[in-house]
């Protein structure tokens, strides 16, 4: 009950290095003069207080705890007598592992300080307001520019889509089939169906192309595709670039006739 009166505020740490660094600073020590045993105890004490407060402890903190304990135990273990003559080597090895930790801490400290510098810069810079037209800028396509500009510097598909939408508005953008009205295709489809019914046999696609020109070919082809989709006709082609034969599907008799 009384506890509820207190608000306990533990500083949050970005990671084990951050915590270690904090402990070293608190002890007013230099990284190179810390005692592994002491820092390990303090580190574990902090983790304990976190546990008592039911705070979640990230796995990285536990890994560091294990590392510290390993370093500490190495320092505590008596050296075996047979290694006495290799005392110096042994010592060097011990220092090396602790040194590795110090080096890592030192490196972390440099970047930690740099992040403080960046924070100051951030605060300063945020006080300066720049001219901005607001909203998302969309690159306008000039005549000299290629469509490639649409992709340039775009980080998201949505950027590209926005720019593309803009480009289709400004340029004389002409989708290939915008003029293919539904009724033209319906018209052609009717014609194809009537002719097939009349002739009562499969006909090559070329028979339905009544006018010269590419447009007529396109319309005929689209109509046939649409009719195929609707299962009205079947398209047969025996070899590549061979004539495309159009078979009316509703009349099975036609096929048999063809077969016989």
């Amino acid at each position: 009950m009384v506890q509820a009166e207190y608000t306990i505020k533990l500083p949050t740490f970005e990671g084990p290095f951050d915590l270690l660094f904090h402990l070293i600073k608190k002890a007013e020590l230099d990284i190179w003069s810390i005692s592994i045993a002491e820092i390990t105890d303090q580190y574990l004490a902090y983790l304990h207080s976190m546990k008592e407060l039911n705070l979640e402890i990230a796995s990285e903190f536990l890994v560091m705890a294990a590392t510290l304990l390993r370093l500490k135990s190495k320092l505590l273990l008596p050296r075996s007598p047979k290694n006495l003559d290799q005392d110096e080597d042994e010592e060097l090895f011990e220092i090396n592992t602790a040194e590795e930790l110090f080096l890592r801490l030192e490196e972390y400290r440099l970047f930690k300080e740099m992040s403080v510098y960046l924070r100051q810069q951030e605060e300063e810079q945020q006080k300066i307001y720049l001219r901005s037209t607001g909203g998302q800028k969309i690159m306008v396509l000039n005549r000299q520019e290629s469509v490639y500009t649409i992709w340039e510097g775009a980080n998201h598909l949505s950027d590209i889509m926005l720019r593309f939408a803009e480009a289709t508005k400004t340029d004389a953008y002409n989708p290939a089939f915008s003029a293919v009205d539904d009724f033209i295709i319906a018209d052609k489809s009717n014609y194809i169906e009537m002719k097939l019914l009349q002739m009562k046999r499969p006909l090559p696609m070329s028979d339905f192309i009544t006018v010269d020109g590419l447009w007529e070919v396109i319309i005929t082809f689209i109509s046939l595709l649409e009719m195929t989709r609707q299962s009205k006709v079947m398209l047969l082609q025996e070899r590549i670039f061979g004539p495309i034969l159009v078979v009316l599907k509703e009349n099975e008799g036609l096929k048999e006739e063809q077969g016989g």
């Binding site: 970005e14 951050d18 972390y108 970047f111 930690k112 740099m114 924070r119």
Partner: peptide, 23 residues
């Protein structure tokens, strides 16, 4: 900010390198 500081000085740098410095 920590990650940015590391990238700014060590670039080009991998995620693992950043993580190993930050712990």
């Amino acid at each position: 900010l920590e990650a940015l500081a590391i990238i700014a000085y060590k670039q080009p740098v991998t995620r693992i390198e950043i993580e190993s410095i930050r712990g």
